[in-house]
Design a binder for these strands. Structure first.
Lengths: 257, 257
DNA sequence: TAGTGGTCTAGACCACGTC
DNA sequence: ACGTGGTCTAGACCACTAA
C-alpha cells in the first residue's frame, strides 16, 4: 500500500551548507509558488510540522517567520497559519508627477480615505527641518503626525512639519480633517512644486503597531518638501506607506541610456 | 562607592504586556538615538547581555535581530555586534521623470557602475509578460537577469524581458555590457516613454544572497514597461533595489489637494 | 586559541480563537 | 476545553575572526 506524501513534505539535507530553517522556508515557498499548496488553505500546526520534519519547533518557526514577513504566509494567533490569498482589491496608487493627494488617490480607487491625528505640537525644529524648510535660527514649527486610512484600514503614517511664522497660528482642531494642502491653500500658501524622495525601510515597533504589520515589514518611506508659487518652502513631510498595500506609479519621458 | 550603570543597562518590566524582547529592542533603540551608545562602537556579547539582563540568549538575539533588520545594528559573525555608523557616502539617486539609466545615476554620484549577467534565456512568456508587452499567442521572449553594482557593491537585481520577434536575434554576449537601452537604440527601438510602478517588499532568500543583505530586508521593488516612439512595448523590467543604498527622487508640479 | 555570532534542541508556559 | 501561535528558557555545537 502506497502513501501519497502530503504537499508540505520537504526533503531536508542535514549535510547541506544551507541551514535547516532556510531549507524548510525554500521548500514551502516553492510549493506555494507551484500551487501545490493552495492559497487560503491552512498549514499544519507548527508542532505537527516539526514532528514530521524531525526538527524542533523553533526551527520551524524561524522558517515560517521568513515567509510571513514576505507576505506569503499569514499567521493568526489561536487559529493557525494560512497561505496568504491573492489580493483581489486594486491597491491605491499615487501618481507621481502631479501633486495629487492621498485622499484623491484612495478615492480614485473607489475607497474611502480617512485620517486620524496622532499628535500635534508646536516645537523647535530639528536640524533636518531647519535645512529642508530654510528656517531662521530660533524659528518654531508645527509638527503633525497623522494616520492615513482607506476604508478604515491603516495605509500610511504621515509626519508633516510646517514653519509657524509662515503659516500663522494653528491649533489641533485646524488639522483634524484630512487635507493639509487645503488648509495651506486657504492661507494663500498653496504648494505648486515639490521634491519627493522614495526609499524602502523596515518597520520599527512603533510603525508596525500603527500600520498593523509585523515588525520588520517592508515600508515605502518618502520625504517631501513643498514650495509655494513664491518659492517659499511651506511643508516638510515624511511618510511611511505599507509596502503591501500601496503602489507609486509614474510616467517617464525622454532619452534613455 | 557608587557604580555607574553601563549605557546598555535596560530596565525590564516582567509585568508589562510588552514582550521582553521588544522591551530590550526599544531600550537599545532609544539609547542609540539619544547617542548614549556611540555609533561604530561594539555592543556587549550576546551571552554577556543576556546574563546582565537576566534573560536567555535567545531573547537577546530576538531583540538584536529586530534592530539589525532596521539597519541600526550591524552583526559580524565571529567578531561582534556594532552600532551601524552613519552612511558617509552619497547614495545613488534615480531621478524620476526622465528615462535616465542606472549607469548614469551611479556615475552622477562619482561612483563606478557595473553589471553582471546572472542568467539569459529564450523562453515562453508568462501571463504577466504577455499582458505587459502585448504579445501574440506563441510569441517568445528573451529574459535577462542582471546584478547592478556601484563601486563593486551590489545595489540591485534587474530582470528584463524583451519580445524576441521585435528585437531580433540576441545572444548572451549581446547583453553582457551594462546598457540594454543602448542595444535597443542600435536596433532602432530606442524607448521614449515608460510607466514605472514602485513599492516596498521584503527580500526573499535568493535576493538577500545576491544583494548581500539579511533575508527579510526592505527592498524597493519596481516594474517598468518601456515603449518605442512608435508606441510598441519593447521592454518589461522588474528590479529590486537595496532600500538602504538607493533612493528615488522626483519633482512634482501642479495643483495640490 | 579564545571569543563571537549562527544554528538547533526539547521543553515549558501564556494568550488567543473556536467550539 | 482544546488547539493554535507567541514567548521564553538553559544548554549544546558549529563557523567565523582575530590575536
Amino acid at each position: 500500500m502506497s502513501i501519497t506524501s502530503p504537499p508540505w513534505a520537504i526533503s531536508l539535507d542535514a549535510a547541506s551548507a544551507l541551514p535547516v530553517y532556510m531549507q524548510v522556508a525554500q521548500g514551502l515557498e516553492q510549493r506555494i509558488h507551484t500551487g501545490e499548496l493552495r492559497q487560503g488553505s491552512a498549514l499544519p500546526a507548527e508542532r505537527e510540522l516539526a514532528a514530521h520534519l524531525h526538527v524542533s519547533r523553533v526551527t520551524v518557526r524561524q522558517a515560517l517567520a521568513l515567509l510571513a514577513q514576505q507576505g506569503l504566509l499569514t499567521r493568526k494567533h489561536g487559529s493557525g497559519t494560512f497561505i496568504t490569498p491573492p489580493t483581489p482589491e486594486e491597491r491605491p496608487s499615487r501618481t507621481l508627477g502631479l501633486l495629487s493627494s492621498f485622499s484623491e488617490d484612495v478615492r480614485s480607487r473607489g475607497q474611502t480615505p480617512g485620517a486620524r491625528v496622532l499628535s500635534f505640537e508646536d516645537a523647535r525644529p530639528t536640524a533636518q527641518e531647519v535645512m529642508s524648510l530654510a528656517l531662521s535660527p530660533g524659528e518654531r514649527v508645527y509638527r503633525v503626525r497623522r494616520l492615513r486610512t482607506s476604508d478604515g484600514e491603516a495605509l500610511a503614517v504621515e509626519d508633516s512639519t510646517l514653519p509657524a511664522a509662515l503659516v500663522g497660528k494653528l491649533s489641533q482642531e485646524d488639522v483634524t480633517d484630512a487635507s493639509l494642502y487645503a488648509l495651506l491653500g486657504g492661507r494663500g500658501l498653496q504648494p505648486v512644486r515639490a521634491i519627493r524622495h522614495l526609499r524602502a525601510v523596515s518597520a520599527d515597533l512603533k510603525l508596525a503597531e500603527l500600520l498593523r504589520v509585523l515588525p520588520g515589514a517592508a515600508l515605502l518611506a518618502t520625504e517631501r518638501v513643498s514650495w509655494t508659487g513664491g518659492g517659499r518652502p511651506v511643508e516638510y513631510a515624511r511618510a511611511h506607506y505599507r509596502g503591501d498595500r500601496y503602489d507609486f506609479v509614474m510616467e517617464l519621458h525622454g532619452e534613455g541610456e
